[in-house]
Amino acid sequence: MGEEPTMAKLHPVLLPSQGRGRGRGWLRRESNPLLIKELRGRMRGARAFVVLTVYLLLLSCFTSIIYYAYTASARGPGGGPEMAYLGKVIFASVVIIEIFMVAFITPAFTAGAISGERERKTYELLRTTLLSARKLVFGKLSSALTYMLLLILAAVPLESLAFVLGGVVVEELAIALVILLVTALVFAVMGLLFSSFARTTLVSTVLSYVTALLLTVGLPVLMLISIALVAPSMYDFDSLSWIAQAVLMYLVFFIASLSPISAAIASEIMLEEESAILYFWYDVDATHRIPIPSAWIVYTVVCLALVLVLLLITVLRVRRQETK
């Protein structure tokens, strides 16, 4: 019976599809099916909008509190500089709060991405299709990032409030956005990595949040403590050779650039003190000066490199899992 595949008669549409869509995944404009599915699921129902609303409400509350606290405490003669300072304070606090929120909301979207499929017993169905490990990982990543992008862009008007008060330039906003986007990217990939290794979403979520906490709070605090410990013995800093001084400077700035919080603060200070958007020249002594890149650049480069490595590990892990 049926030498001729009769399924093709029932589904004549099936025949032309055979063998199409292979390879050249990056060049083809074929969209990732997982991305479409995830976005559909994410934006469906109230959750996505509730998260967005709560996020904006929290940010607005913080902004209002800072605004009223500042205007209440600094009731001076009024005028330009105070308002400009207020603008700066509001901008800085909104950005820092946003960094925290991005660092803690992003893992929620990716920490369960792969472990959740395993828990819901949908992973095997997915793995027996032709969807590659790379497409699976990128689909999950881009769906989380798309939503994070929405959150970050939705808060831009709040940050721009500072423009009304003055004291903030467009470059600062641009730098803040870059840091926020890179933070979302790095935490999304981290969640995805944990999700591919952890047995359960719970483990993956805990690991993601511990890492988020370490990077946003732990690292800056550790840095402050070590500076406080090292500083007293450093008053003979000038007696060191200029190379040793340069190396120390690079080290301090490099470590400061590892955490999104300290990177944002350091970038702002560099912009203020040295009006350095990209880099500034640091005078080690009378004859030697070294270029120091702005913290946000170092942060971005380090994060992107980390993202590439973590993504590679995740894809390899997903690819390997089936062969166990």
């Binding site: 029932l10 589904h11 549409v13 099936l14 032309p16 599809s17 199409r20 869509g21 292979r22 099916p33 997982l34 479409i36 599915k37 169905l125 997915l126 299709t129 032709l130 969807l131």
Partner: peptide, 20 residues
């Protein structure tokens, strides 16, 4: 979604889903 995972082009998927 699964038809897309099996790399069936979008133009034919709609018919296919109905047939299935």
């Amino acid at each position: 979604f699964f038809a897309a995972c099996y790399e069936i082009p979008p133009a034919t998927r709609c018919r296919l889903v109905d047939d299935l």
